[in-house]
Amino acid sequence: MNTYLSVWKLRFVSGLQYRTAAIAGMATQLFFGFVFIMVYVAFYAHSSAQPSMSLEQLATYIWLQQIFLAFVMLWFRDNEIFNLITSGNIAYELCRPCGIYSFWYAKLLAQRLASAILRCIPILLVAFLLPKPYNLTMPPTAATFALFVVTLLLGLAVNIAISMFIYISVFWTMSPVGSTLVIAVIGEFLAGMIIPVPLMPSWMQAITYALPFRWTADFPFRVYSGQIPQSEAVWGILIQFVWLAALILLGRWCLKRALRQVVVQGG
C-alpha cells in the first residue's frame, strides 16, 4: 500500500508543477462550458417542445462535466505508460515487486485527482457567480450532495477501470492513438458528454443505461441536481459497485494475457 501512496504523491506533486497548464486548462474548460450552455440557451429559447430537463438543470449538468472533466473524460492519456509498452521498457515494470494493474491504477488515479483538484475550485466559483441562466445551482439537500460525492468517486473508479483497457489494448496495437480514440469517442458519447443523456431519444437512452459509461458521468451529475431521487441513487451506487468489480476483474485478466505475449521492441 505504501508503494501506491508514494507513487501517488509523486504524481500529485509533478501535476502541481504545471501551473500554467492548469490555468490554461481552467480557461479552456470555462470557455467550453460557457459555449455549450450558450448553444442550449439558443435551443431552449424558442422551443415549443417540453424537454425532460430544465435549462437550469442542464447548465448545472454541463458545469459539473467541466469541473470534474479530469474525473469523467476517457481522453486522458498517460504517455509514460504508452511509451513503456511500445518501447519495450515494460520489462522494467515487470521487475518491480508490485502488481502492474494496481500500480497503473494508482498512477492514473493520482493524475486525475491532481488535475481535478487544482482546477475544480476556481471553475466552481466562477460557475456559481455567473448570471442566470448560465450559473451552476446548489444541490437541493445536503443528503443529495453526500450521495453525489459518493457516486462521483465511484464513477471515477469505474472510469479508470475502463481506461485501463485503453492501455491494455496498446499491447496489441502498439500505437496508442487508435485505441484511445475509438474507446474515448464512443465512451464519452455514451457517458453523455456530447449531449446529456436525458436529451437523447429514448432508444439511445436505453443503450446508454445498459453500458458502464453513463455511470461515470451522467449518473452522478443527475444525482447532484436531484433529478434522480435518493432512493434510486442508492440502487445506482450498488450498480456502480457491480460494474467496478466486473471491469477490474476483466481488466486484470486481459492484462495477464497481454503480459504473457509481450513483444519487446527494438534492441
Partner: peptide, 20 residues
C-alpha cells in the same frame, strides 16, 4: 491495426457530434 482503428475513430469523432 492502429491505423485502421485510428481511421475508424477519426470518422467516429465527428459522427458522434453529428448524432448529438
Amino acid at each position: 491495426l492502429s491505423f485502421w482503428l485510428l481511421t475508424v475513430g477519426q470518422a467516429l469523432t465527428p459522427l458522434t457530434v453529428l448524432a448529438g
